[in-house]
Design a protein around this nucleic acid. Structure first.
Lengths: 240, 240
DNA sequence: CCCCACCAGTTGTATATACAATTATAGACA
DNA sequence: TGTCTATAATTGTATATACAACTGGTGGGG
């Protein structure tokens, strides 16, 4: 199936309808969505087609079904540990949301003492510094402040980050061998507030991440998220 | 759908057939499996039913399809690195599920030639052998078959493993310095089937793990999981 | 008040059928 | 020999239909 966004299969139309309804709280967590026959009538399709749409959303974890009862929106109950480097663009798209970003800056930077220590390079060594706002449906959800070892990634500052993310680009060049995560809750700086469009009192989730490939420290990133917009999510169940 | 192994839905019969054929190399990695119409004829079902079986295996990553061409067994090209020893009890609890276990046995064992080789001790040396079923919400998810060097961990067989796991106990005593993982897919023994409550044809993921602390080999464990309950993520592509 | 049967509504599995789209190959023609 | 077209084979989407199984509510009877 070649995806032409303008011409969607009927089952996809229904999937999109349901996802939108979940997002705008028409069907909040725990709520029962219309039955297959209802959706079939509403969208003038066969029940099989409605079933297909629902079944796929069940497989994606957004819905859960009980024979005889109905189909329910899953509830978020738990967070999964952060063990992997996920590509934020993929995560947003998996939620059927629109990913975009805004490149604030992409510069050559000589490592000061602090950065040298964090990036494992010598003081004065060349690095690249990128500052990017990642957006979900146009809303800023992550400010990525990243430093990359220029000796290892000489073309970093030639990349077009409207077409890829730094994480994706780097992971394509360097298979990860080690990841370090430090997670904490912080208040944001004035600059961060500006980019994330949040107030000075909004708590933020800060993830400091360093990635190694074959024992070489490739980059270190400070990822900061508005606390009310970002959480680590996992599979959910519904209780009646 | 309540699963009664004796009465499987027709699409499940086909899924099982395909999985078995993949495992015994009837259809090796990269191979093309029979088309929907062929399977429909072979199993006397409608094409829709064959399609359902294949589609689900595609979703599970075992198969990949090309319109006009056929359906292929995926090739495993990479495995996500196993870099840590996670405590299964913690993992399950992090999923907000109930962890429990069943201690099948905890014995003193003199190392035979095979075990001596694996545990790096002399033939006849004293070891401890623990066999534990780890359960998530009462359901067996891992059978842990572990041998520990008794000279290094003399109190191992005094532990109450209903209050901790062997992994947790050992990791508190011995900081890990090296881990070896060997991962393969196997059929389970009759005893393993009994403990894991699975059928003889259920594929299992086997992780053989050895852990060292300060260059001393502490223990070796055979961890076996029902394939449908536990899997390591992997990226797969197919080439034609 | 409790129990049971019935019913409505829902999901679960399956079928025969139809048309669309893609791919590779073979044959015809220049 | 190269190009184009037709065909065969395959997957992709969809339909109307049927029966099975499950759940909860209601009504009737004891």
């Amino acid at each position: 199936m070649k995806e032409n966004p303008a011409i969607r299969p009927r089952f996809q139309v229904i999937k999109d309808f349901i996802c939108l309804a979940i997002r705008d709280r028409t069907y909040p967590a725990g709520a029962c969505i219309p039955a297959e026959n209802e959706l079939a009538k509403k969208f003038s399709v066969s029940r099989m087609t409605a079933n297909r749409a629902i079944k796929e959303l069940v497989a994606e974890g957004l819905l859960v079904r009980h024979q005889g009862l109905g189909t329910f929106v899953t509830k978020i109950q738990a967070e999964s540990p952060l063990l992997e480097v996920r590509n934020i663009a993929d995560e947003i798209r998996e939620r059927h949301h629109v990913y975009s970003n805004e490149l604030v800056g992409l510069n050559n930077v000589r490592a000061d003492e602090d950065l040298a220590g964090r990036l494992g390079v010598g003081v004065g060594a060349p690095t690249f510094h990128s500052l990017i706002v990642h957006k979900e449906n146009g809303r800023p959800v992550q400010l990525e402040d990243r430093f990359v070892n220029a000796a290892l990634v000489p073309d970093y500052n030639q990349q077009d980050f409207s077409q890829t993310t730094p994480n994706q680009y780097l992971s394509e060049l360097f298979p990860l061998s080690e990841i370090e995560h430090i997670v904490e809750a912080v208040l944001s700086t004035e600059e961060e507030q500006h980019h994330l469009k949040i107030s000075a009192t909004s708590p933020c989730l800060l993830v400091n991440r360093r990635t190694w490939s074959a024992d070489r420290l490739i980059s270190c990133a400070r990822l900061i998220h508005p606390g009310n917009l970002y959480r680590l999510s996992s599979r959910s169940t519904v209780s009646r």
